[in-house]
Each structure stands twice: as structure tokens, then as C-alpha cells.
Amino acid sequence: MTRRASGYFTAGETWLHRRNPVTKLLAVAWTAVSAFVVPPLALPVLIGMVVVGAASTGLLASVVRSLRIPALLFVSIFLVNAFFYPGAIDRLIAIGPVGLSWEGIAFGLVSAGRILAVFVASILFLFTTLPDDLLEALVDKGASHRLAFVVLSAIQLVPRLQAQSAAILDAQQARGLRVAGSVFARARAVVPLVGPIVLGSLIDVRERTLALEARGFGARRDRTAYRVVEDPPVDRWMRIAIVLSLIAIVVAVLAGWLH
């Protein structure tokens, strides 16, 4: 895999690509809050919205592909809840204290669904937002430049670590390390695989710090920006709508109108 500066960004000219990164970030936050406060029956609507969003940008296939990684998480959230739901009455199968229950299945589906909605929204954000645009947009909205840079570096750390892990896996297997087989063998492989990532990252950090210093990073308080991030009026209206609707949802939930 070749590492790219743009991380997960997929170039495009869709309506979502054109949104200001802060608008999109707010939309992700909106999804995250809504997913956990709306009643279960509204959840399919929410998931439907993010799926339609993905489809409208032509990125649905990429989004589905990226679900392979957290798929195990969704399945385990569902299974754990389905079998271990506390105080379940309507049991389908019972093995001592453990049992599959209708309440558990329902709760498991809802929990997995909430996380799925947030995950898809976040992935869509990463796919349609150039990290640097996010940085400039945040700075433009008054965020500290250093803080924004840290956020940006964190986003970009993931693909970098992926490439590094692949190299480490090669190197340790070439020294006879078995990474497949019994649970014991797999457990034994953890330190040789994780150790170099941690130590190597520390060395990288030192060189990167020195290089950033040499480029004058943080030398002055006033800083200019090369990238111009568009913030059309429609984005401002959208942000107001997002914030207002989020307040409305939270108030409605607190007041019990949605139950």
C-alpha cells in the first residue's frame, strides 16, 4: 500500500466534497448525538440518511468496503447484548444465567445500529475532506493552529501506522516469528509486532519535531494560510440548521415527546 499525504481522502466534485469541513464536522457530531438519543424506532431513518448521503456522492461502495474492519465489532456488540441482556424475561434459549432473549436481540441490534450510523458518518467525512482543509477551516473558525495541527496529525497517523505494521510483520516473520496458529502463538507474537511500532514512532517523532522546527512551525503567532477553504453562505445556513435541529432533538428527547 502506498501512503498518501491525503490519507483517506478520495478526490471528487460532489456536493459533500464542496461543503466546508466545519459544516461536515458538525454534521458528524449531529449524527453521533442523535444516534444515541433518538428512540430505537427512529434509528433506521438516521441510518437511511447517512446511507443516502454516501450514495449521493458515489462513495457507497467504498464505505461498504471500509465496513469490513469494524464488522467484527458490530457483530460482537450484537451477540453480547443478545445473549447477556440483563434481566431478560422473554428468553428463547436459556443456558443457566446466559440466554438468548428477544430483549437482548432488540437491544443488540439498536446498539450496533447506533455505532454503525456514527461510523458511516465519520468515514464519509474522512473520504470527502482533505485533512489540510479541515485544519485551515478550524483555524479560520478560531481554533489554535497548534491544536488543529495535532488533530490533523492524529488523523494521518492511522494510514502511516498501517504501512509501518505491514513492514514490521514482514521483518518479524522473516526472523521466524509465527503469526498464525494457536492462541498461544498469536499472543507470543504481540510484543515483537507492537514493540517496534511504539519505539519506531518515538524515533520518528524526534526527527519530525526537528524538521517542523526547521520549517519555522510555531515560530510566530501571526500566521498566513496558502489554502483558501471555501465557506459559501449555504454552509452557514446549514450549520445553523444543524445546530437548531440538534437542540430540537435533545429538547424533544428530554421532554419525553419522542417516547
Binding site: 499525504a5 482533505l130 485533512p131 526527527e207
Partner: peptide, 15 residues
């Protein structure tokens, strides 16, 4: 200053 590892010196965030 420029160091020996080419990849580490670039900001690695610029497209």
C-alpha cells in the same frame, strides 16, 4: 536543516 530520512522531513500532510 535537512536530515537523511527523506520521508520524515516533509510535513506529510500536504497534498
Amino acid at each position: 536543516i535537512v536530515f537523511s530520512s527523506p520521508g520524515l522531513q516533509l510535513s506529510s500532510s500536504k497534498p
